[in-house]
């Protein structure tokens, strides 16, 4: 589905590489969490995939198409197939929820139709369906800046799904949200990906959240992959390898406690044993 080979990124003027020879493969419908300390290159990695950041070296192939070889016009066409969800939602604040959703279709309509907001009825119907699906029925005409953080992220997710993507890139979807909303948003992303058999790469700071919703974990440190495996192999040794020394047992224990309180209904996994949801 997605193949990354020897991907490297050097930002000009910095000594260390942001990404150093990263290779990974993603099968259809697979949900990967990308974890690692700040500055490990997580954001750079997912931005290289849709080339919001231009990689220095390496190959990225999505469903047989080599993204790294595309020129401007073909790249725009390829970006339509890749949905993206952002940390701080990145909505256009002064536009309505509907306009934000429809902006996910920009790659498919011409300039004038999009300027005049004359989108095909099928797009509008899909937008209403997605709004209902993410729990924002009746919000179509609200301006994005009147929504709460959780609601904005739901709009961000719906916008990405408007593209009918083949791959979903998610950059720290929960970093600007409170713990409860964070969990709801992660659950929503997980459900939607499962429903649509949509493969996803999710950058996450929050290890317990990653362990709960993502069957496969990739650990990044200093621009290199230091762990790639199923969530049950993610133990304290591996965490130390990714993040450095820390008393993981006690941290995970605390996390498990408030998990149990917060989410009895969904049969919360006990995180320190690393069980998938």
């Amino acid at each position: 589905m997605l193949e990354i080979e020897g991907l490297s990124k050097h930002y000009p003027g910095t000594a260390a590489a942001a990404l150093d020879n990263v290779s990974l493969q993603l099968e259809g419908g697979e949900i990967i969490a990308l974890i690692g300390p700040s500055g490990a290159g997580k954001s750079t990695l997912i931005r290289c995939i849709n080339r919001l950041v231009e990689p220095t070296a390496g190959r990225i192939v999505l469903a047989g198409e080599e993204l790294t070889a595309l020129r401007a016009r073909e790249l725009r066409r390829a970006r339509r197939r890749i949905g993206m969800v952002f940390q701080e939602f990145a909505l256009v604040e002064r536009l309505s929820v509907m306009e934000n959703l429809l902006s996910g279709r920009l790659g498919y309509v011409g300039l004038w139709r999009s300027v005049l907001r004359r989108f095909p009825q099928s797009d509008i119907t899909r937008a209403f369906e997605l709004l209902e699906r993410v729990g924002l029925e009746g919000y179509a005409d609200r301006r994005a800046d009147t929504l709460s953080g959780g609601q904005r992220q739901r709009v961000g997710i719906a916008r990405a799904l408007m593209q009918a993507p083949e791959l979903l890139l998610v950059d720290e979807p929960t970093a600007s949200l409170d713990p409860r909303t964070a969990r709801q948003i992660m659950r929503l992303i997980h459900e939607l990906c499962t429903e649509h058999k949509l493969p996803a790469i999710i950058n996450l700071h929050d290890v317990p959240l990653a362990m709960r919703f993502c069957p496969r974990i990739i650990g990044l440190r200093g621009g290199r992959i230091v762990f790639d495996g199923p969530v049950k192999q993610l133990d304290t040794t591996v965490l130390t390898q990714i993040y450095g020394d820390e008393d993981w047992a006690s941290m995970a224990g605390e996390q498990a406690d408030d998990d149990a309180q917060d989410d009895v209904a969904s049969g919360a996994a006990v995180v320190d044993r690393g069980r998938a949801p």
Partner: peptide
């Protein structure tokens, strides 16, 4: 950030200005 998000949808440069710049 919204410029980045609109770019990621595959919008053309004209659409990018119309959706990410003009409203702002």
């Amino acid at each position: 950030r919204s410029v980045e998000a609109i770019t990621a949808t595959g919008a053309s440069p004209g659409q990018l200005r119309a959706y990410a710049v003009v409203p702002q």
